Simulated scan of single mutants.
Amino acid sequence: MSNMVGSGGGELRAPIFGGDNYEFWSIRMKTIFKSHGLWELVEKGMECSDSKGAGESEAKKKEKEKSSGAGKMTVTELLMKDTKALGLIQGVVSDEIFPRISHEETSKGAWDILMKEFHGDK
């Protein structure tokens, strides 16, 4: 895996978020997410791939994704991308902030908690 975070010299890095300067931190994080092709997933959640299929079973969704060509990601690929995004968030929050997002299983969930708590905080 040559594509892991932290490998290579030109990686974008966010400072550890400890509760201050949320606005600056979130702008840096958005840039990092975008550089990994993850921002849409963090912003909109797992349903961003196919919001029309919300009521379908997982098996049906998988079938549809397979038949719809290269444009769509499989559920597994989506979960892996979301896990990567969640890992990025977990890796750049301080030990004081981490417990607030430790139970979240999606990047959107963790991102939304931080945004609700710190957005607009002076």
Rank of each mutant, 00 (worst) to 15 (best):
G87N: 04
F17S: 01
S57T: 15
K30T: 14
L12C: 08
L88W: 12
N21P: 04
E40A: 13
M80W: 05
F118I: 11
I113R: 00
W111M: 10
I113F: 00
K60Y: 09
A70E: 05
F118Y: 15
K116I: 03
E117M: 08
S26H: 06
I101N: 03
I89M: 07
I113T: 11
V42W: 10
V42C: 02
G91V: 14
L88A: 05
S7M: 14
E43R: 08
L114T: 08
K81A: 06
K52M: 05
M73S: 02
T106S: 13
L88T: 10
I32M: 15
M46D: 01
K30V: 14
Y22A: 00
L114A: 11
G18H: 02
D95S: 13
K62A: 14
A59P: 00
R13E: 14
M80G: 00
K122V: 15
I101V: 15
E96Q: 13
G18L: 01
M73Q: 03
S7A: 13
E117Y: 07
S7D: 07
L12T: 11
I27P: 00
G45E: 03
L41A: 05
S49Y: 07
L114Q: 08
L86C: 12
G6E: 06
G9Y: 13
D112F: 09
E43Q: 13
A110T: 09
G8L: 10
G9W: 12
D50C: 11
G19H: 03
T74G: 05
L88R: 02
W111A: 06
H119G: 00
G69V: 09
K30N: 02
G19W: 10
E105H: 09
P99H: 06
L12F: 14
G69F: 14
E47G: 01
K122W: 12
G18C: 06
V92I: 15
S68L: 12
G120K: 01
E77R: 08
D82Q: 05
G109F: 13
R100Q: 15
D112L: 04
K66L: 12
R100H: 15
E43M: 07
I32L: 15
F118P: 01
D50Q: 05
I32E: 07
D50W: 09
L88C: 02
K72C: 07
P15S: 12
E47R: 04
S67F: 10
S68G: 05
G45A: 06
V75P: 00
